[in-house]
Write a protein that binds this DNA or RNA. Sequence first.
DNA 1: CATCTATTTAGTCAATCATCGAAATAGTTC
DNA 2: GAACTATTTCGATGATTGACTAAATAGATG
Lengths: 109, 109
Amino acid sequence: MSDIFRALADPTRRKVLELLRQRPMTAGELAGHFPVSRPTMSAHFTVLREADLIDSLKIGTTITYQLKLSVLEDALLGFARLFAAGAREPATDAAERIKPEQISRGAAE
Amino acid sequence: MSDIFRALADPTRRKVLELLRQRPMTAGELAGHFPVSRPTMSAHFTVLREADLIDSLKIGTTITYQLKLSVLEDALLGFARLFAAGAREPATDAAERIKPEQISRGAAE
DNA sequence: CATCTATTTAGTCAATCATCGAAATAGTTC
DNA sequence: GAACTATTTCGATGATTGACTAAATAGATG
């Protein structure tokens, strides 16, 4: 779980996943979309692979990466559901809810 | 977006959010649930606050933290939707899909 | 087989992170 | 106002991260 969120914390890696959403792509093709070196991209692929978010297929000297969409969805939706289920409605439980005017350190400061 | 995923990448911080899902709690009360020092917990609260995932209310010397559920939901579901929408069904598009037996480096290795 | 291409590994560096103990801040209480 | 409580800020430390260049691996092609 930590691995997945850590993988998603980097904009380059999120963009890689977005690119792979459309179709599998080779390491070189993916790297062409970013202004960083190949070794750096390779490290990003490793992080994504260790989070089980992508699969790889080696054909000759070329490696094709593929998004594991179900892993991503299961993780995100599963975690989101953990919070949606059993949570009170935002409008109710006014007594326990902190009112915006009372916030001393938050978006206001 | 990166801030939110980075905040979620730490198990302690995820657990804090889970605790706050039930009701607002003070810094000390939250800290009591974890085997780390108060300064460390304070740092975690700062990360969560910077990700806009919690609000804080200071009453006297006590600070109460509250989950910003809508921020969390909007981020997670919004990102998940980005991948669900427009994605092809896993069962179709067999030609572009890498078959499990072909995987050279992934879950198999 | 020498060379070219695709990608990774190795080694390094600066920046960030999680953690701690000590000290500071701020409110409460006697 | 001295002492106590709640929490943060400060300063230090070891681990991890994202980046790079250089070198290694491995397959393809002349």
